[in-house]
Design a protein around this nucleic acid. Structure first.
Length: 423
RNA sequence: GGAGAGGUGGCUGAGUGGUCGAUAGCGGCGCUUUGCUAAAGCGUUGUAGGGGUUUAAAUCCCUACCGGGGGUUCGAAUCCCCCCCUCUCCGCCA
């Protein structure tokens, strides 16, 4: 959510920023609702003030007196007016809130112009992704893959896109998680194990609701949502709190399984581990002082990149253009790992600065030492990393002539062996 | 799941229909006293929205907020209803 003052006072700035995201928002309609809200608010507040004044006067009067009775009669009219206008005011307020929730975050000045994924800028390129790998296969075609990643039985037990990980498949996932969390701790992120169901208020604060409702699994009868990413419970940790400035920046990391309905996905995009309904991920998250948020975003991106470097996987960093930025992001980098068998890039991390967009919805503030006032923090997050697709990349890039997969050196202590076997 | 007790400001804790945004204590901040520390005394102390003034801020005015939502009433922290959460006992259980 944006600051309503920003829209009120500099609508042209907001208009230009929204255009950069290639979205259509009727700002004039929002401004009109805002104007009528303020007019209604002043009316109601004036009536309330009258009520309060009368109340003080009545407190001093004897209860049975004619003056008292007269006041009661007089105030009855005011009371019914307040009720009626307050109801209208609340209605307007709700309309305004709904309209404001439809306004996207503004892209940062450093975000490149562009409309589609093709317009994203390749920010950096690492490793030799174009080096020939004669044994490479799409991971789902590797002999024995189905034994370690059992999609058929997962489909029987739950549904499509819920694979069982068996034997070395499960072992590789666990090794990666352990590695990611250890590296996160070393980089200063305090490990958190959050709830994996959240309520509607939390999902709204991080922006999943209302616009991405169909992407989450919802439970009955309690109406809790299975988290699509640890970002949701983690960001909400400090919801409705005022932090001491001295605790900033706060670094946290968390592993959770992530649940995504992925309605509408199809084809090659979703083969094998490319896109599943449940996958493991470690999320990195920061709450920072607004003045430092872009430096902190770069540092977080580097923390995520380091994981791919240590795993010795070829990858690239994309700087997302305005049109491919998410609704809530002010700036976003995607980390994409090279999958040598499929000969394509797979997104394994998305590192974003939300500025105050999430913090305003979630009311996460700090008390500024300088001004003594409360200010919204900036939130930054990114995967560090998504396990399923990193697994896919390891299987495809490290497949050897004997049909085994070489485990990256840094992972050997966690995995326990130097090779993964499909037997 | 059953029964009971609760939820008030940063914390503890008063307040059962009317000048209550709310007694008091602690903590925080400021000042005074003091060689320093400690202690004492005095003062101060939340959040949000709107308006006015201003280059802006501060100040000023108004309104809301006593877990959340609704109701009763001229008037609700206080009475009624629903929901959430915490604690105690019982039941169940990894």
């Amino acid at each position: 959510m944006l600051d309503s003052k920003l829209i009120r006072e500099t609508p042209e700035v907001v208009r230009a920023a929204i255009a950069k995201k290639h979205l259509e928002i009727d700002l004039d309609a929002i401004l009109a609702i805002d104007a009528s809200w303020r007019a209604q608010l002043q009316e109601v507040e004036a009536l309330r003030s009258t009520q309060k004044g009368a109340n003080s006067a009545m407190a001093a009067l004897p209860k049975g007196s004619p003056e008292f009775a007269a006041k009661v009669a007089e105030m009855k009219a005011v009371s019914s007016q307040v009720k009626e206008r307050d109801a209208r005011l609340k209605e307007t307020e709700e309309r305004f809130r709904t309209a404001m929730l439809s306004v996207p975050n503004l892209p940062h000045a450093s975000v490149p112009d562009g409309r589609t994924p093709e317009d994203n800028v390749v920010f950096s390129l690492h490793g030799a992704h174009d080096e020939p790998r004669p044994h490479a296969l799409p991971h789902w075609e590797i002999p024995g893959f189905d034994r370690l990643f059992d999609f058929a039985r997962g489909a029987k037990v739950t549904g499509a896109g819920f694979p069982f990980l068996v034997g070395d498949g499960a072992r590789l996932a666990r090794a990666l998680l352990q590695f990611f969390l250890e590296e996160g701790s070393k980089a200063g992120y305090v490990e958190v194990s959050p709830p994996i169901f959240v309520n509607a208020a939390s999902a709204t604060a991080t922006g999943q609701l209302p616009d991405k409702e169909g992407q989450m699994y919802e439970t009955t009868p309690d109406h809790l949502y299975a988290v699509p990413t640890a970002e949701v419970p983690l960001t909400n940790f400090f919801r409705d709190e005022i932090l001491d400035e001295s605790v900033l920046p706060v670094y946290r990391c968390a592993y959770t399984p992530c649940f995504r309905r992925e309605a509408g996905s199809y084809g090659k995009e979703v083969r094998g581990l490319n896109r599943v309904h449940q996958f493991d991920k470690v999320e990195l998250l920061k709450w920072v002082h607004p003045a430092t948020s872009y430096d902190e975003l770069d540092k977080l991106r580097e923390d995520a990149e380091r994981l791919l470097q240590k795993l010795q996987l070829p990858y690239r960093v994309l700087l997302m253009c305005g049109g491919d930025l998410g609704f809530a992001q002010a700036k976003k980098y995607d980390l994409e790992v090279w999958a040598a068998g499929q000969k394509r890039w797979l997104e394994v991390s998305s590192c974003s600065n939300f500025e105050a967009f999430q913090a305003r919805r979630a009311q996460i503030r700090f008390r500024s030492k300088e001004s003594g006032r409360t200010e919204l923090v900036h939130t930054i997050n990114g995967s560090g990393l998504a396990v399923g697709r990193v697994q896919a990349a390891i299987l495809e890039n490290n497949l050897e002539s004997d049909g085994r997969v070489r485990i990256p050196e840094v992972l050997v202590p966690y995995f326990g062996r130097a090779h993964l076997s499909f037997q």
